[in-house]
Simulated scan of single mutants.
Amino acid sequence: MDSLLAVRARGITKCFGDVVGLDGIDLDVAQGQIHGLVGPNGAGKTTLLGLLLGLAVADSGRLEILGTPVGRTFAAPGGVAGFVDGPGLYPSLTARQNLAALAALRGHDARAAGIDDVLDQVGLTDVADDRTRGFSLGMRQRLGLAAALLTSPRLLVLDEPSNGLDPAGKKHVHGVLARLAAQGTAVVLSSHRMDDLEALCSEVTILATGRVVFSGPLSKLAAENRALDYRLVTSDTQAARRLAADAPGVHVVDDAIVRHGDEVLVVRALAPALDELVVRLVHAGLALRELAPVVSPLEAAFLNLTEQQRPAPDEPGTGTGRPGAGGQQQRTDVQEQEAGR
């Protein structure tokens, strides 16, 4: 295995009876990389995360984690930590007691386990001695991350770690993940929060119906995507509309709308055409106050790529089958969650 890869998967297939969970998955995750995993509900994300954590094994294909081939066992190599479908906690215990119990299960003394340090990292010091039955979803997610950090993982696998996080919690979690990646830890996380993935991830893998429809850098995803809609706010909306209408490769989508006292023009273009429009606006002496995609490039690509994988309404087995599956059914969300447990 490439020494710089924390995860190398080739042709991974996983079925649950006649239900196809993963269909020939290839995945590379480098050490020190935060890799995002996205897809519609039922696409196979939880199943794949479960394989990385050793909660299940593939039916076929080759999986190597931290340089170790994963065989027909339910044990992940040492150095792997994380959670799928939410962290498991003892509600009658405090946050500190939950972590001490986990440390004891691993044969570590609570004081030497670094419990106070990981609680501080995830921003839970002030509630360390509160029972977790009263914790919000976001607090439970942060405590699950703290539990994973106790092992000083070299591969961290997280399922929807941003669920329920307030801005402060989100800041803590983002900071922790960025520091871990800078120290060489590989992080694989799934999320429906496209803004989180764009802020954290250098590469993403998009799944649809158990298959990879894209895997690579975000910059490549944006380059391969279709034209996006952009909000454009300038000092003179009418002049900007005229310039946009005459600009090659730019289409004016809507008439100007008013938002917070500013007129907003919506245009559709690929990045090169948009760059040329900005040059024209500046040369015309217009002040550019805002230029932002209506939908993020990652979200637009996600919608485009996953929509292409849906069978046409008149295809046999619509909603349950997949091409080449020989009539096997695609898995349901419930079955995906069960696979990750």
Rank of each mutant, 00 (worst) to 15 (best):
R242K: 12
I65L: 07
A300K: 10
E338N: 12
R193D: 05
A301K: 01
T306L: 01
G321W: 10
V157E: 00
S202A: 12
D262M: 15
A312W: 15
D18R: 10
V176H: 00
A147M: 06
A30Y: 03
T151Y: 03
A147H: 03
R289M: 14
L281C: 07
F302R: 04
G107T: 04
G36R: 07
E315S: 15
G138I: 02
Q328D: 10
L63H: 04
A301F: 03
R322P: 15
L243W: 06
L281M: 09
D126Y: 06
R310H: 09
A113Q: 03
S191F: 05
L221I: 05
A223E: 10
D246F: 12
A181K: 00
L102I: 13
L99Q: 08
A239P: 09
V157K: 02
A110M: 04
D109C: 08
Q309N: 14
Q141E: 06
L149S: 02
L305R: 01
L51R: 06
G82N: 14
L155H: 02
D275S: 05
H260Q: 15
L158K: 00
A273F: 14
A239W: 09
G32Q: 12
H172E: 08
P248K: 11
V70F: 05
V204G: 04
L303K: 07
R111H: 11
L99M: 10
G42I: 11
A244G: 01
D130T: 12
D59C: 15
L93V: 09
S191Q: 02
S60Y: 13
L197M: 09
R310W: 10
F16H: 05
L137G: 01
V267Q: 00
N98T: 10
G61D: 03
S202N: 09
A112K: 11
A208I: 09
A113S: 02
L4M: 15
A43D: 02
G169S: 06
V118T: 06
P40L: 07
L158H: 00
G24Q: 02
A6I: 07
L52E: 00
G86D: 08
A76I: 14
P316K: 07
V29I: 12
D159I: 08
G340T: 03
V173D: 03
A199D: 08
L155Y: 04
V213L: 13
F135E: 00
V84G: 07
L66D: 02
V250P: 00
G261Y: 02
A30F: 05
D26N: 03
R131Q: 05
L49Q: 06
E276I: 15
Q309I: 15
L180M: 06
Q238D: 15
M1P: 13
G107Q: 01
G285L: 09
P69L: 08
A273G: 13
V253I: 01
E160F: 12
T68G: 07
A182M: 08
T332Q: 07
R341E: 14
D23Q: 09
